[in-house]
Design a protein around this nucleic acid. Structure first.
Lengths: 150, 150
DNA sequence: TCACTAATGCAACATTGTAGCATTTCAGCG
DNA sequence: CGCTGAAATGCTACAATGTTGCATTAGTGA
């Protein structure tokens, strides 16, 4: 019986090889996890999935693997609401709609109905892959709470 | 000779008192610094300015002071490119234009010519104070470097 | 199979932020 | 003005996230 394999691992191996990198179990598993996920994952999320898949790994190795994937363009790094990076495999739909970020309580809400305008012209040389539109302000809960304080 | 006083400290004291908080040297100085700055400052930036003003303080006290200012609505907390918060006194112009965030090298570039559309309708209860438009992708430098690699 | 080196694993460190608790200091009051 | 109680501070220790250096392991090509 072969080792457990994620559905997208075959193409993952090809992608890794195409970058001139060695094909290792950590890279295969991490890239597979990222490609199977619909949204961005934190280092911690990925570590948990690796554990579930019985892929032994080291914290530092995971950081370096993710750095390498980002450097090769196989993954993207985005900064989350807390002070931790999120990673995704490029085509995810997290950036397709706008977000509301409450500066009072720090919560982030998806505004599915609003989409950023991606047609704006950027200066030469910049190659945008997605646009992120974030509104900052006060959310309904915090607005209410503040009114009660007064 | 009186202690050095920032230009906006008078009104800062009034703002603090209006929130029902005690007027302390740390709050006066921090709020003054934020109000005098045109852009968002990190905890570290603020600590450096406090040091320059000879306002003795503790790391933890500064965190708690900033938390309190944010809670009272006297300051805003925004997440920076690195995993550290930035603080500002509300009306700053950092959000008035779009930014380009290179996912490869992590650098952030201001795109002065592009401004987010603030006229979009948000769901009821949300009170936006500013909109942030960030393009993610590859910057000219990284695009060139990647072409050379191939 | 062998050798070379990329990749890993480990330990120690750096940065950013929090929790608990004793001490200081602000602000109201006699 | 000098007390007094609670708010604010300062200290120590801790937690979360990420990085550096270096010895060891393991892919890859021959």
């Amino acid at each position: 019986m072969p080792a457990p394999t994620l559905p997208s691992e075959q193409s993952a191996a090809a992608l890794i090889a195409a970058c001139g990198g060695r094909i290792t179990r950590t890279r295969l598993a991490v890239l597979g996890i990222l490609r199977d996920s619909a949204h961005s994952l934190s280092h911690d999320d990925i570590a948990a999935q690796l554990l579930a898949l019985d892929v032994h790994h080291d914290r530092v190795t995971l950081y370096r693997t993710l750095d390498w994937l980002v450097e090769q363009g196989l993954a993207h790094r985005v900064s989350g609401p807390d002070r931790a990076w999120r990673f995704n495999s490029g085509r995810d739909n997290a950036g397709a709609h706008a977000h509301f970020h409450c500066d009072r309580c720090g919560h982030i809400v998806c505004l599915e109905s609003i989409r950023p305008d991606e047609s704006l012209a950027l200066p030469a040389g910049y190659r945008p892959e997605r646009a992120e539109l974030v509104f900052h302000g006060t959310c309904p809960d915090c607005g209410r709470r503040r009114a009660e304080d007064a």
